[in-house]
Amino acid sequence: MRIEAKFKWLPTPLRSLLLFLVWLLLNNSVSAGHIVLAVILAIVIPLATSPFRTKQPLILKPGLALRHLMLVLYDIITANVQVAILILGPNNKLTPGFVKVPLDLTQSLPITILASTVSLTPGTVSAEVYPWAESLTEGEEPEERFLLIHVLDLKDEQALINTIKQRYEAPLKEIFQC
C-alpha cells in the first residue's frame, strides 16, 4: 500500500485527471483556452486542498481498476433488471434479511468503494460498518470489521457472502495492494 504520489506537485493524479475532464465536460468544448484553464485548475485545486485532506491509499493497478469498473457497470445493469422484476412480482414471496459480511479491507477508502458497489448491485443495500467508529478510541484498530447489508430477497446467506467477497472485495484488495 502506497499513500504518497511520485511527484510533490501532483499529490492526487487521478483526482487531477477527473477535475480536468469535468471542466471540459461542463463547458462542452475542447478549445485551447479551456484546455489551458482545465490544466491550471487540475494542478492548483489538489495543491490548495492537500493540507486538509486525509491521506488515502493510491490506486496502484489502474488497468485492473478499469476492468473492475466495467464488471461493476455490467452488474449494475443486470441488477436493475433483477430488482425491477422483484418489485413488480408479488410481495409475499420476498424474503428480506440482514446479513453481516466480514471484511478483509482495513482502509476507509476501499471500504467506502465496496459499500457503494454493494448498494448498486443485485438486491443489496449496505447499511452499516461494524464496529462503530464512535466506540473506538483514537488510533485503536479493531480486530475484525463487518459490513451489515440488507437483502431484498435472501435465498442462500453463505453463497451471497462468498459472491461479495470474491467478486467485489478481492479485486479491490489487489487494486489498492492492502
Binding site: 424474503t95 440482514f98 446479513v99 466506540s135 451489515l148 446467506e157
Partner: peptide, 12 residues
C-alpha cells in the same frame, strides 16, 4: 419474516 434481525447492533 425478515431474517437475521439480531445482526443489527445497538448504536452508541
Amino acid at each position: 419474516r425478515t431474517q437475521g434481525k439480531d445482526n443489527i447492533e445497538d448504536d452508541v
